[in-house]
Amino acid sequence: MFSLNYEIDDVFKINEKEYKANGNFDNILRIIDMLQESRLTKAYKYLLGLKMFFGDKTDLVALEPLSQEEVFHEVYHNYVEKQEEAIEYDLQGNPIEENEGNKKQDYSLKHDAPYIYVSFVQAYKIDLIEEQGKLHWFKFQALLEGLPEDTKFRQVISYRTWKPSKGDSPKHKEQMRKLQKLYRLPGTENEIADDEEEVD
């Protein structure tokens, strides 16, 4: 977990032995992508995940399959799922926000990669391609959450989460619905705001 009090520690003690994991943001993103690959069996994902975290030559691959699963989940949980209790994350590592009793995904780390990239350049002058292998996952997450409202990524999220208000003009509503349709995430075709959802 990200902390200003201590250095980021990627060392895990497994079976009384210490192992250093690769906690760079690009590696974590590749692991998240790998977990979504339907052609891979769960057992192979855990094996591959251990190699991605600890290197191809790690002796952890010699563990029994059940132990590999347990170790992988412990490490993955530390990076992707170990957050504040109030925040829930989907299988791709994206935050899920509560919306009138329904869980709604506002962004995708994979689908929104271009917007995230340009926003990091815009706000921080950070080129994420050049930072591969250097920028830690925890730092990446903190910077992502702290992006200013005028960045492309934040603007896209504002389009997706927009809901009509009684004071909105028909022209404004039409424009916002077009933007919602343009920037909607795959699999959210029916999540376009309509007038029945108006709030005071």
Rank of each mutant, 00 (worst) to 15 (best):
L179V: 00
V121K: 07
L147W: 01
K152W: 03
D194R: 01
Q155K: 13
H172C: 11
K104Q: 07
Q122F: 10
Y115M: 01
R184S: 09
E191Q: 12
W137M: 08
G133R: 04
I116E: 00
E98G: 06
D106G: 08
D106M: 07
E85G: 11
H111D: 03
F138M: 15
V80I: 14
L179M: 12
H172T: 15
R184M: 10
E84K: 14
A86Q: 06
E197R: 02
K178G: 09
P95N: 13
K110Q: 08
D106N: 12
K104P: 00
F153S: 01
I116T: 01
T188E: 04
K171C: 08
R177K: 15
G101T: 03
H111T: 07
A193D: 01
Q180P: 04
M176Q: 05
N190M: 08
E197S: 07
K110C: 05
I116S: 00
W162T: 03
V156Y: 00
K82T: 12
D195W: 04
H136C: 08
K181I: 06
P186G: 08
Q132A: 05
Q180R: 02
Q141L: 09
F153N: 00
Q105D: 04
H172W: 11
L128C: 04
I96E: 03
L144W: 08
D194W: 02
A142V: 13
Q175I: 09
A142H: 10
P186H: 11
E131C: 09
D195S: 10
G101M: 03
Y117W: 12
P186T: 08
K139Q: 12
F140Y: 15
E88L: 15
F153V: 06
T188M: 07
L91D: 12
Y117P: 03
K139I: 14
V156C: 01
Y124I: 11
I87D: 15
E196C: 08
Q132H: 03
L135M: 14
Y79Q: 03
D112W: 02
